[in-house]
Every structure is written in structure tokens, then in C-alpha cells.
Amino acid sequence: MLYVNNLTVSFGPITIVDNVSFYVNEGEWLMIVGPNGAGKSTVVSAISQGISYSGSISYKGSDVKKMKPHQLARCIGVLSQNHNVSYSFSVEEIVRLGRYSYSPGIFSSSGDEDEEKINHALEVTGMLPFVKQSVLTLSGGELQRTFLAQLFAQDPSLLILDEPTNHLDLVYQKQVFELITAWIAQTGRSVISVVHDLSLARAYGTRALLMHQGKSVALGDIEDVLTRDNLKAVYSLDVHEWMRDMLSQWED
């Protein structure tokens, strides 16, 4: 579905991401893991065309760089870790923006399909009771679910999540990841997420890319990547044991 080949990102003389290659197939949830400064977030901003890069990124055979912004948005959706909304938009207005790529013209108005998708997105994320509420009054978890609803309304086939549950407590983290698990269960979809919590990656991911200092250390099935040796080499600590201990919290 998505192929990333020899991705390199540099800011001046500093190379942030060094020749990284990986792919994601339909139905897969790829976890990008690694310590701070490994270049994980940079990889995902390159995929969403947020920064300039060398190498190639192709989605279903077409070069992502050459896609028009609204075409790209229909294929790839992004959920960021922080949202600093400075104006009091309502939840509905934020979610409605998710439909932008389906009618980017000047005179287009929203159709039945748009309303249906917006409604559905609000419903599955549990944001329906907050529709008219200002996003400035929401809690961190509610705000993140609002943007998740926007993403569901956008309805791309590939989700990119950059530490989607960074500031959320366990209950919300679990809620968000369960919602994404349900979403990916539908055919033709896949997810790439940057995750810090290794137990979370282990519990929900199908495959993993382990990064260290801008380089790809391991790529493969989740249990083959998150091994004791691999993790020790990257984190220089025995995080593997810790990960195993924490794993049970994600299971029902």
C-alpha cells in the first residue's frame, strides 16, 4: 500500500533520518518505535508532505510528492500529538473540516454523504453529545477524540498517528487505540503510528520499525522486532522486561 524507499531528511548539515526504507500492507498496523531523537516523527511528517525529503514515498504505485493536496488527504490522514486551537470552533466545525478534500472547490456545499460521514464519525468517537460545544472547553482526551472524529470523517485508507495518546491517561489511551483497532478492521485500511510506550506498540501493532539515531535498526513482525536484544541495543537498558510487565494493562 505505502512504500518508503531510501528516505533521507536533513536540516542543513544534520541528518535526521538516514536512508530509511519500509512498507505497509493493507490491514497492517505498523508501529514506529525508538528513543527520543530517533527521527520517528520526522518520518511521518515526510509521509504527510510536511517537510522536504529525498528518496521516494509511493502510495498504491503513485508518488506521494506529485499528488494534489486534496487527493493525498483522501488517501492518507494524519492525527497529530498536539492541537493548539486558539479560536472557539465547535466540535462539529472541526469534524466538518475533515470533509474538505471531497469538495475543495469554491461553490461546493456539503452533500448527504458528507453529513452521514460526519455523523458516523461523531458517533463512534462518542463526541455526539459535544457537537455544539466549543473545543476550547474540552479536556485533552475529548479534544483528541474530536480530531480523531475529523480523521474518520476524512475517511482515508491510511492513518498516520504521531504519538496520538501522548498526554492522555490510560483510560483515554485505551479508548483511542480501541477505536483505531475497530477502524482498521474494515477492509483496505492500514495504520502507521509513532508510539513511545513499547507495551502499547506490542499490544496493538502487527509490524514494527525500530529506529535509532535516524537509522532503521529492525523491521518486521512486531514480536520479531521488539526482542530483548534489539531493544537493549537501542535503549541501552533492559526495557524489554518492563514492556512485558506493562503489556497486561492493555488486555481485557
Partner: peptide, 16 residues
């Protein structure tokens, strides 16, 4: 509107 929510968000929803 998309820009007012955030420039990154505008790009993510498909604004040029």
C-alpha cells in the same frame, strides 16, 4: 477555517 484550526491540520485535511 482550516488554517485557523492549525496550518498542519489544514494540510492534513487536504488544503493546498
Amino acid at each position: 477555517n482550516a488554517f485557523a484550526v492549525g496550518e498542519d491540520n489544514a494540510r492534513h485535511v487536504g488544503v493546498n
